[in-house]
Design a protein around this nucleic acid. Structure first.
Lengths: 350, 350
DNA sequence: CAGCGGAACGTTAGCGCTAACGTTCCATCG
DNA sequence: CGATGGAACGTTAGCGCTAACGTTCCGCTG
């Protein structure tokens, strides 16, 4: 086990007939080696199948050109984000390692963060919780960028404008004439969820619509919670004509419930989601939703991190990227108000 | 940047008033330290916020209790698998690091595999391609387990029984009376896709059904390809009464196409998928599909790897796990054959 | 041609850790 | 009571690499 099989730099240097340090310089493309010798060394290293030992490299204080990402990987949103980051990192000639957090586990991820610190030049944390522990664990050894960390965060962060995004979705519904607008919330551990909820309450006040606690149902971003929340809403004596769900997945859960109740989307109830996950444009009905600027978030976070790694100080920068309302099939203007009650009794299909 | 902030073992030892090595033994729970002193050292280490430097640990030849996973993370199937592995690894007091392969990039992932070797005690590769490069890159430094690697693989592997799974799906359709059964293939780079295709051809022969090349349409596991493939099938003069799609995603693509054509599933055409992704039981219609034993695959692969890490030699073991046919709503017995032509003209809705 | 500077290399000293081997000390035994 | 052996500890030598210096040598200047 563990028989060394890769050659070491020293062996390469020996074969090439140069000193260890010259070989190191050649491999790392640093000055101080004549062009011929450099080429020679590189050729020999290649022939011998030499690869640098990153552990040793990092141990002796150098850059490894690796960044680490810590995330819960169970949603399309996060995994797409991670994919995007990988692409950006690779484009910058960095490699990216992912630590997949145990889903919904509040305990600190233990030594793994430390480990990543020891390996990587920087860390991106997609940890949307108000995690008190994060700051204690992640001390200032290497740069850290957070995604969706609340304003509390001591780290530079990149986030989508959840508040404005939710506002635009709700504004859309109001412009369509809806007055009884329900909200299916997300997991309130997440700042993003809280921002969307805040937008809901604010816009009601702003549009001088009454706030009805019955119309604000707790969810957790899951399809199931959307389904159940919608059922609660449908059971109300005066049910809403529009639903804003805190994310696309729960929006589709709500749609399923609405349909099972014999109602149609958007005929009877308009539904808006949040995220614009890929299938939102493919499933029927195509979902009106708020698009998160995934690619830009990936790009911005990686670039910010690399800037920090390079030693440029972007002092605790908070980047907020704009969202975009994507209007598709699941929303429609409110029909003449009177028809609503009729619809309840007749149970209008699609 | 990089100011050392974690204390080193030496510093802990100094504070504890013992030698470096005694501290190491205490921390690593090795014999040779008196119980009191051990407790003392552990307490002090904890107070000082000591964490081992894995890079150094690995460099000096020890275990790191980390396993690495290399995978394309863009499908629910792989990301769920990775999630499962993480849980199993954690249960065994191992940490897991993920390297997300660039999607559909055939080039070798370069130095990252070597890197993982240098950090991890073992690697699991979810690389369903017949990748010639894999074997050259991954040499025998640390144990490697592959998922879905073809039989060609030189490594121990864990895989679902794609062939039997496909057989059971097709058998199901045949038992329902279907005779014109189409196949939407997957990406043939993947051994799993090839196995499913092989099953398709075999079962036709076995059931003495004619093989019609028109009924075997190329796909690539994507929703779009399923959609387009179904359209091709619907355009045939004598269209199939059942479709077996190589995975769930493309099955849903096919269903969308069938519906757009004004036909119903399973009323006009039965559809079977493969994988049993979570939403297969939630979307309408609930999909009849072949369940891959995800949890078992995760468990088996991690356990196999850890066994190898522990030095037990499981000589090039190939574990094949059984699949399970899940019959839901998307398949139904073939109606009286004669009705088929009628249906074409009338365009039976649901 | 002495003097100097800079490119091209080599040497040394660690980074933090562990394996392997020393050393100390004390209980046990013939 | 000296020999013995084993537990408890300490010391040393690296793992593979790089930063920070040395050293060499050559071309150039005045």
């Amino acid at each position: 086990m563990m028989k060394r099989q890769y050659p070491t730099l020293a062996e390469v240097a020996k074969v090439a007939g140069v000193s260890l340090m010259t070989a190191s310089r050649a491999i790392n493309n640093r000055p101080g080696v004549s062009p011929e010798k450099r080429e020679d060394i590189l050729r020999i290293a290649d022939e011998m199948g030499y690869v640098v030992n990153r552990a040793a490299q990092k141990l002796s204080g150098a850059r490894t050109r690796i960044i680490a990402v810590v995330a819960e990987l169970h949603t399309p949103f996060t995994s797409d984000l991670v994919l995007g980051m990988g692409a950006v990192a690779r484009a910058a000639d960095y490699e990216m390692l992912v630590y997949s957090l145990p889903v919904c586990d509040r305990r600190p991820p233990g030594s793994i963060l430390d480990l990543l610190h020891q390996i990587a030049d920087g860390v991106i944390v997609i940890l949307p919780y108000e995690s008190d522990y994060l700051e204690s664990v992640v001390s200032a050894h290497i740069p850290v960028v957070t995604i969706e960390q609340g304003a509390v965060s001591a780290f530079p962060s990149v986030t989508a404008d959840n508040y404005q995004g939710a506002i635009s979705a709700l504004q859309h519904l109001i412009e369509l004439g809806h007055r009884r607008i329900a909200f299916i919330s997300g997991n309130d551990r997440l700042t993003s969820a809280r921002d969307r909820r805040r937008a809901y309450r604010d816009i009601l006040a702003q549009a001088r619509l009454p706030y009805d606690p019955d119309l604000e149902v707790a969810g957790d971003f899951s399809r199931k919670s959307g389904f159940e929340a919608a059922n609660k809403l449908l059971a109300l004596p005066d049910r809403p004509t529009a639903i804003f769900a805190a994310n696309d997945i729960s929006a589709y859960g709500a749609i399923a419930a609405i349909r099972e109740a014999g109602l149609s989307v958007p005929g009877d109830i308009s539904v808006v989601g949040f995220d614009d996950i890929p299938i939102a444009s493919q499933l029927h009905p195509q979902l009106t939703t708020v698009r998160q600027p995934l690619q830009q978030m990936a790009r911005a976070s990686v670039n910010l991190l690399l800037a920090l790694v390079a030693g440029l100080d972007a002092p605790s920068e908070q980047i907020v990227l704009p969202t975009q309302l994507i209007v598709r099939e699941s929303t429609t203007p409110l029909k003449a108000r009177k028809r609503k009650d009729e619809a309840v009794k007749v149970g209008v299909g699609r």
